[in-house]
Design a protein around this nucleic acid. Structure first.
Length: 106
DNA sequence: TCCTTGACGGAGA
DNA sequence: ATCTCCGCCAAGG
């Protein structure tokens, strides 16, 4: 596995995530498909984990297929993601977002 | 290599 | 709606 390809996949994923508009959310599976990597939803999580803390890429707009935050409730990461979404104007209740209302449909 | 680990997803109960 | 269980698949040990 060439490290260059690994980077290409991560770049592709970061790019798609960077396109999610403010006020909207996506899912790991949707990002994987849009990045040309169908079936690699888990890989999206891996790619986002590689982001530096200061990143401008809106990683917090990526939720699981049920619209739930994929971090343990109450954990630092969970709280950061939740507050970022609120800042976007996204309604979050019990770590959950209504995809019918806030889902990103390009 | 083999085994474990996940920021996942879908089906079933 | 909630909870398991299982399939998936690249990484890292």
């Amino acid at each position: 596995m060439p490290a260059s390809e690994v980077n290409d996949r991560i770049q592709a994923i970061w790019f798609v995530v960077s396109r999610i508009p403010k006020g909207k959310v996506s899912s790991y599976g949707q990002i994987a498909r849009m990045a040309g990597l169908p079936g690699l939803s888990r890989y999206v999580g891996y790619a986002l984990r590689q982001l530096p803390e200061e990143t401008e890429i809106p990683w917090f707009r990526v939720l699981n297929s049920q619209g739930r935050i994929s971090f343990p409730p109450g954990s630092p990461s969970f709280l950061r993601q939740q507050s970022q979404l609120i800042l976007d104007g996204v309604e979050v209740r019990q770590g959950r977002v209504n995809l019918k209302l806030f889902g990103w449909n390009p």
